[in-house]
Design a protein around this nucleic acid. Structure first.
Lengths: 170, 170
DNA sequence: CCGTATTTTCAAAATTTAATGAAAGTTTGT
DNA sequence: ACAAACTTTCATTAAATTTTGAAAATACGG
């Protein structure tokens, strides 16, 4: 396999994986393309390389910028915008964790909070207690996930690979 | 809010959340319904309560059983099958982690392995080294995730809430 | 076996999600 | 202020996913 072919396959594979991760294929492919390309790319180059429309390229580049996975680069004397990808995989991971938490954990906890507002008069029922216990149980795991996410986002990679991974080995 | 209404809303909410988690709405709703219901439910009851077709109910019940989140209960003297949900949230979480790893981490690592098979003659290029470094970097995070998942699946909830969560607080 | 109750399958329909591309908007140089 | 270069929006179209429902398969009692 040649290098270019491998890169090509990486882009395709990242696109497919993105799908499993709840990220749309194009967004993941653009991200992968920026990851394997050292020089900044223009929208037109991205359209050409991935064979996608201008609208699609634009929307997904914007989404990547929102996530903090890509950034705009202005080239002196040029009007066209160029884009680069965050190359530091730890930072990429942190940004993905942050977004996933926002999409997955936050809405879960907020729903659980809402549901706990059940009428007082029902509180004697056994059934009521079981239900509230379920909500509390789920919330306590959600809270833990939240804490893990927080810690990962705030700490640095050496803590992760050192302290945490050492603990995992035991 | 009445208990029944809260349960109803829990089912709906779990369905919506499932969507963010890459689980289809019906599967998540059936799961939620089984979580909040103590007695086993028949396919017909589930169809009725969630207003879905027999095919849909059947397929998603099967999927839940595959994930280990539901199980069949045979009632003595009855021909019809009944279903119950796993009520222990720790176990539910472990089963979800297991499935997500299968869908998300395993294919990632297998793709990375494939991509490392690049032609020898290219290996001198700077570009080659950068690319392989990227693959290795990604794989080392994937491996860590894998380790975390493994540990969580094998260990018990007291380790999780004790040792791990204490570490997170620091 | 046969008939009935129940479950499973799967092609077609419905729904949801993503991509297109042309038009509208913006920025910049002159 | 205009026009060219470029970016963004969004209604429409296309693709992917989910749901339906009727037919086929299976299980069971007599």
């Amino acid at each position: 396999m040649k290098l270019e072919e491998a890169k090509q396959r990486f882009v395709e594979a990242w696109g497919t994986l993105g799908t499993n991760w709840g990220i749309n294929r194009t967004m993941a492919q653009i991200h992968a393309l920026l990851l394997v390309t050292d020089e900044p790319l223009s929208t037109d180059q991205i359209m050409e390389l991935l064979d996608i429309s201008r609208g699609n390229a634009n929307m997904n580049l914007r989404a990547l910028i929102d996530w903090g996975l890509a950034e705009r680069k202005v080239k002196l004397g040029e009007r066209m915008e160029y884009f680069t990808g965050e190359k530091d995989i730890w930072k990429v991971a942190v940004k993905i964790i942050r977004e996933r938490r926002k999409r997955e954990i936050d809405p879960l906890r907020s729903t659980l909070r809402d549901l706990k507002m059940i009428d007082d008069k029902e509180q004697k029922k056994e059934e009521y207690k079981t239900f509230v216990k379920l909500l509390d149980d789920i919330d306590s795991y959600a809270e833990s996930l939240d804490r893990v996410a927080d810690k990962l986002v705030l700490t640095d990679r050496s803590w992760f690979f050192g302290t945490l991974m050492k603990l995992m080995a035991k």
